[in-house]
Amino acid sequence: MRGELTARIDREGFAILPEAVSSAAIDALLAAIATLPPGTEPRRRGGTRDLFESVPEVRELARSGAMREAAEAVLGPGCFAVRALLFDKTPEANWKVIWHQDLTIAVRERRTAEGFGPWSEKAGIPHVQPPVVFLEWMVAVRLHLDDCGAENGPVRVLPGSHLAGRLGPEEIAAWRERTPPIECLVPRGGLLVMRPLLLHASSPATVPAHRRVLHLEYAAESLPDGLEWHERW
């Protein structure tokens, strides 16, 4: 798997791995998530954060098994998980996401560092846009906890766009004009592995059902000038 996965992600920026995680492991994860305190359910666009601290099963998935193997195939054995999010599209939270790149990282505290900025805050956690090279040393591994078909508002991607660096609005428009999008249809237990700089979007779901996704981000390098990843597992 490693060579083929690495080659495809280098070329296209993403890959789908169906049937990567067992149904039993997903059931255990969903049971653990169900015990989260009221108000932490992923009912808004930002999803649920700090899952490493609140859900031990997420730490286990990040450190071993298919999600870890996928990250290592792209980044090497020295990689580590730096963020865990939970998303869920429901009739109450059925959002649209425009074409974009994932340009921010979560850090422990705000510090001055060359090339880092602008800064923002999400759920009380400092976020910053790093130099592009740090994003190139990252990969997202998304575990689908429900089947995701065309009616569930799947992620759409523009293959190869991760190779173009940070893109402005005009460049994004140009990519959209010349590159046919691909819908990432992923079954329950499947993984979507993608580079942060890959242009991606999603439409609202047309069928009212859960589309729960555990989103883990992995990195391969420490941050400079005293900056630290918000999480490191």
Results as ranks from 00 to 15, higher is better:
E92C: 00
F87Q: 04
Q101E: 02
T90M: 02
R142E: 13
P126H: 05
E114M: 06
F116D: 10
P91L: 11
L85G: 03
C148D: 08
L86H: 09
Q129M: 15
H100P: 09
E121A: 10
V128N: 03
T104Q: 12
F134K: 01
A140K: 13
I105C: 02
H144T: 06
E114S: 14
A140E: 09
V133Y: 01
V139G: 03
A106L: 10
A123I: 00
K122C: 06
L145W: 12
I98G: 05
E136T: 01
A123V: 07
W137K: 02
R83A: 12
G153C: 14
A113T: 08
V155D: 02
E151V: 11
A123Y: 13
V132S: 09
A106Y: 00
G124W: 13
Q101D: 03
V107S: 05
A84W: 07
L103I: 14
K96G: 01
L86W: 13
D102E: 10
P154G: 14
A84M: 04
A140R: 08
E114G: 01
D102H: 07
L86Q: 05
V141S: 02
I98E: 12
T104M: 10
K96P: 00
N152E: 15
D102S: 05
E136Q: 15
T90Y: 07
E109M: 01
F87K: 02
W119Q: 10
D147A: 08
D147I: 04
V82H: 03
W119T: 05
K89S: 07
A93E: 01
G115E: 10
L135W: 04
L103S: 10
V97C: 09
Q129T: 15
H100S: 12
I98C: 03
P118T: 08
N94H: 03
D147H: 13
I125H: 09
K122N: 05
A123Q: 15
L86Y: 08
P130Q: 09
D88E: 11
N152T: 09
E151Y: 08
A93F: 02
C148P: 08
R108E: 14
A106N: 10
H100K: 14
K89T: 05
R110A: 12
I98S: 07
V141N: 03
P91M: 13
I125Y: 08
V82W: 00
E114Q: 15
E114R: 14
V155H: 01
V141P: 05
T112Q: 10
P131C: 03
A140P: 00
V97E: 09
A93Y: 01
V97M: 15
R83F: 00
P154A: 14
S120C: 02
P130I: 03
